[in-house]
């Protein structure tokens, strides 16, 4: 397709002129930037704006309500908000830690040469391919308090003599979510770490062996430092995933019992769509965003230093 030219013979907008050549870059970027602005930045701005208004159900076609800090005052004075922060923190730390351990262990396992390694890699990656809601339904069946496989196994094996209420006991409900999230989340870590492991030259290990380094020392002084960039990025991504995950908790426990699994994401949803307090829900959302931003910034900064 011919580029239209003006009568002077230069291309439209004078893009051929040296002083305007960089315009092409902006023009090519523009669609993507506009798209991002429309689907991310605009709702974000609307959310921040709503958080400073006392709004029931949000509507974009009505006049803006007066500016107020009432939502933030209510938020910081609410024990429910602080409890949700604590549960979110507990969940982020527990799931991230366990996912990292399982992901690293399975990656180290399938990085070895053994018969059936391809199948083993497939099984390690399988939970990642299962849609989140399907995973929740599977765990919901396994953990069913009256007819579930886990309770049947525990009673049959003599672990307990009574049925455990996996969704009606606050502690067990929390661990139900942790188990589901770890099962769903560890394959991502495993795949990323496996890619990292395969980039480590074998010479490093051979040299270490010659120097008399044992398995643990090789892991501690070669594998871990070389994997740090991968582990750092993966940690941030997993933390952010746990932080904002909604579907697993909503379907499995709906934040209960007695708010024992109510994270900030569930609190935001309940306030917006359960109680129609969009202003307050937006304030929770804004605080969640700030926490995510600060956590990511600190982790990225720390990671950059540790890489070199």
């Amino acid at each position: 397709m011919a580029i239209p030219r003006s009568q002077s013979g230069t291309t439209w907008f004078g893009l051929a002129r040296p002083s305007r050549r960089h315009w092409l870059g902006y023009i090519l970027l523009a669609p993507a930037v506009i798209l991002v602005a429309v689907i991310i930045i605009y709702p974000l701005v609307v959310s921040v704006d709503l958080s400073f208004q006392k709004v029931g159900i949000a509507r974009l076609d009505v006049a803006r309500k007066p500016f107020t800090l009432a939502n933030y005052e209510k938020l910081f004075l609410s024990p429910e908000f602080w409890k949700s922060c604590w549960i979110t923190l507990k969940l982020v730390v527990t799931v991230t830690l366990l996912s990292m351990i399982v992901g690293l262990a399975t990656a180290l396992l399938v990085n070895n040469q053994f018969r059936g390694r391809t199948m083993a890699r497939l099984f390690v990656a399988l939970p990642w391919a299962v849609p989140e809601v399907i995973a929740v339904v599977i765990f919901s069946r396994f953990l069913d308090s009256s007819f579930g496989l886990i309770n049947w196994l525990f009673i049959t094996l003599g672990v307990t003599d009574e049925l455990w209420g996996w969704f009606s006991d606050p502690t067990l409900a929390f661990w139900s979510i942790v188990m589901t999230m770890v099962w769903k989340g560890y394959p991502f870590i495993s795949i990323m770490v496996l890619a990292g492991l395969q980039s480590i030259p074998v010479d490093f290990y051979n040299a270490a062996k010659v120097d008399g380094a044992g398995v643990w020392q090789r892991f501690r002084y070669i594998t871990v430092p070389v994997l740090m960039p991968v582990l750092g990025v993966v940690t941030i991504l997993v933390m952010l995933w746990v932080f904002r995950d909604f579907a697993i908790i909503k379907v499995l426990t709906d934040g209960g019992p007695i708010k024992s699994t109510q994270t900030l994401a569930i609190l935001t949803y309940d306030q917006a769509f359960g109680f129609f307090n969009f202003g307050y829900a937006s304030a929770v959302g804004v605080i969640t965003l700030l926490i995510c931003f600060i956590a990511s910034y600190l982790m990225l900064g720390r990671q950059t230093k540790s890489m070199y």
Binding site: S168, D169, P170, G256, P257, I258, K259, D270, G274, F275, F276
Partner: peptide, 19 residues
């Protein structure tokens, strides 16, 4: 109008009673 908030409150207090 407050049915959503009311029903959640009752459910949680009754769950607390049981737990």
């Amino acid at each position: 109008v407050q049915y959503g908030e009311f029903s959640k409150m009752v459910m949680e207090e009754v769950e607390r009673m049981l737990i």
